[in-house]
């Protein structure tokens, strides 16, 4: 059984212009010990999906409107009360936010911030928690960790700060770590180190990781399986090899075609012609239809097409074509 099964998840943001269905029927599975990549253009609902898992919307007017988030052995997180959630958060599922500067409390020493997650779930003394925090800093390869314990976030470099955030995430050996663009706010030179650290920690602790990124290169390097999202929905999912080597959904193909080839470092998703639809009243049928070069009249009617198997097992996509023409770009 999968560690995490998300089924038909729906998350809405209500605003003055109406209700934005940021996550509109998302389904995917995360297996134990794997790194699961989520990619897609800005605003397609990657963060909203991740945040739904722990009900953390940063005070935004968001709510989970439907679907299930099944954590193995724990049940449906989508319907949990705050009280029950607080037992899952930090202990079973941890979160790594994009910007480690804003993700750390600026007025609290980092040792205390790490100790907090331990003391919140286990009855340990301050000294024990501090010792554990020190061990965690060593584990994430922070240099001179004793000195860092009493530092404030602004006194550390971006890379060190993200290591601190990772240390907090690892503290209670959660089964799942959600990392929402953990390197986007960092210098290019430290991005690799942080990703390597994450993979290494996965290798030695066996935790699963959901990794949101804009960088398909990163996905192909460190992820095992992945999902491609478009306008609040998953359009293709499978193993990284299946999706990146034999992409079947026209959107995935367009994404790959838009890459500047080879191993260039700048592998951010170059936007495809046109822009994604608004999420308040998206067009009927396939949401990619207005930009899809293979679109047919029947694509733009009714419900968005559901994910269905494409060739090999566990390679799913949401295109109505039985055979997508095999031409790139």
């Amino acid at each position: 059984m999968s560690l995490l099964s998300i089924r038909d998840l729906r998350t809405e943001f209500s605003g003055p212009a109406g209700i934005a269905r940021a996550v509109d029927g998302v389904s995917f599975d995360v297996e134990p010990g794997e790194i699961f990549g989520i990619v897609g253009e800005s605003g397609c609902g990657k963060s909203a999906t991740c945040r739904s898992i722990l009900h953390l919307f940063g005070g935004a007017p968001a709510r989970i409107a439907g679907g299930q988030i099944l954590l193995e052995g724990t049940g449906d997180i989508a319907r949990m009360t705050e009280r029950d959630l607080s037992r899952v958060r930090g202990r079973e599922v941890a979160f790594i936010f994009q910007d480690p500067l804003t993700a750390l409390n600026p007025t609290m020493r980092i040792g205390k911030q790490i100790a907090e997650v331990i003391r919140c779930h286990r009855k340990v003394s301050k000294t024990e928690a501090r010792a554990a925090a020190l061990d965690l800093l060593r584990e994430v390869q922070v240099t001179s960790p004793e000195r860092r314990l009493d530092a404030y976030p602004h006194e550390l470099s971006g890379g060190l700060r993200q290591r601190v955030v990772i240390a907090m995430a690892l503290a209670l050996r959660p089964r799942l770590i959600i990392a929402d663009e953990p390197t986007t706010a960092l210098d290019v030179t430290v991005q690799d180190q942080i990703l390597r650290l994450l993979r290494e920690r996965r290798d030695s602790t066996g935790t699963s990781i959901i990794l949101v990124t804009h960088d398909l290169g990163v996905v192909s390097q460190i992820c095992d399986r992945m999902a491609v999202m478009y306008a609040g929905r998953v359009v293709e999912t499978g193993s990284v090899r299946q999706v990146l080597d034999t992409p079947s959904h026209p959107y995935t193909r367009a994404l790959l075609a838009a890459l500047p080839g080879q191993t260039g470092r700048e592998r951010d998703l170059t936007p495809i012609e046109g822009s994604p639809p608004g999420l308040i009243s998206p067009p009927p049928g396939c949401r990619f239809a207005p930009r899809c070069r293979f679109a047919r009249p029947e694509c733009a009617v009714g419900q968005p097409p559901a994910l269905h198997p494409r060739g090999e097992t566990a390679h799913l996509d949401a295109c109505i074509l039985t055979e997508v023409p095999d031409v790139l770009a």
Partner: peptide, 15 residues
């Protein structure tokens, strides 16, 4: 209340 570190604190499991 909207600050990221408040989400971090909640993500730790603090009530």
């Amino acid at each position: 209340m909207k600050a990221d570190y408040v989400d971090t604190a909640r993500a730790k499991g603090l009530n």
